[in-house]
Simulated scan of single mutants.
Amino acid sequence: MATIHKFEELEIWQLAKDLYETISPLSDKLKKNKDFRFAEQIKSSSGSIMDNIGEGFERSSRLEFINSLGISKGEAGELKSQLHRLNIDTYITEKEFQELYKKADTLCAKIAAFMSYLNTTAHKGLKFKDRQK
């Protein structure tokens, strides 16, 4: 695996950013319908996915990164549930729901796979690289 120097290089962060860019306009649509709380919830959960990936990466610790990825995966699960709500409340069509849900589900799977990889590597991260145990 190639060395990653910035979190923006991570495929999972790029996918999370793409998902946020798709969800953000939906939040504006919710606000126009006076559904302010839901608008903030969906924008927050989609943004938290990418934010936690960035935060975990910058902590320079493999275990802290894995923890942050777990939080990101949880936020993606929350977003998937919110997509159901968008569909039920007819803010999006069934086709839009299927497309967005697939993006979120794929992101969840890729985060889980990356967590599995990090759990098998001996690399500790910069924070603990010089420690014996």
Rank of each mutant, 00 (worst) to 15 (best):
M1V: 11
A2V: 10
A2G: 04
I4Y: 14
H5S: 08
F7C: 02
L10S: 05
E11D: 08
I12L: 07
I12F: 07
I12R: 04
Q14M: 09
L15G: 02
K17E: 15
K17M: 08
D18H: 10
D18L: 07
D18V: 04
D18Q: 13
Y20C: 00
Y20Q: 09
T22D: 13
I23T: 01
P25E: 08
L26F: 01
S27L: 05
D28Y: 11
D28T: 04
D28F: 14
K29E: 10
K31V: 09
K32N: 11
N33D: 10
N33M: 08
K34D: 10
D35M: 11
F36W: 08
R37C: 03
Q41R: 07
I42F: 04
K43S: 13
S44L: 08
S44Q: 13
S45C: 07
G47T: 04
G47F: 10
G47M: 12
M50Q: 13
D51K: 06
N52W: 12
E55T: 06
G56I: 02
F57Q: 03
E58K: 14
R59K: 15
R59Y: 04
S60R: 12
S61Q: 06
S61T: 09
R62N: 11
L63C: 00
E64W: 03
F65Y: 13
F65A: 00
F65Q: 02
S68T: 00
G70H: 10
I71W: 06
S72A: 15
G74C: 01
A76C: 11
A76N: 01
G77T: 09
G77Y: 01
E78L: 00
S81T: 15
L83S: 09
H84R: 05
R85K: 11
R85Q: 12
N87K: 15
I88Y: 01
T90I: 07
Y91R: 14
I92T: 05
T93P: 02
T93V: 09
K95C: 00
K95N: 06
F97M: 06
F97N: 12
F97V: 05
Q98R: 13
E99S: 08
Y101D: 02
Y101K: 03
K102F: 10
K102L: 13
T106S: 10
L107N: 01
C108G: 09
A109S: 08
I111M: 03
A112P: 01
A113R: 14
F114W: 06
F114I: 00
M115S: 07
M115L: 00
Y117N: 03
L118A: 04
N119D: 04
T120I: 02
T121Y: 03
K124R: 15
L126E: 13
K127M: 12
K127L: 15
D130T: 13
D130Q: 10
R131A: 14
R131Y: 14
Q132L: 13
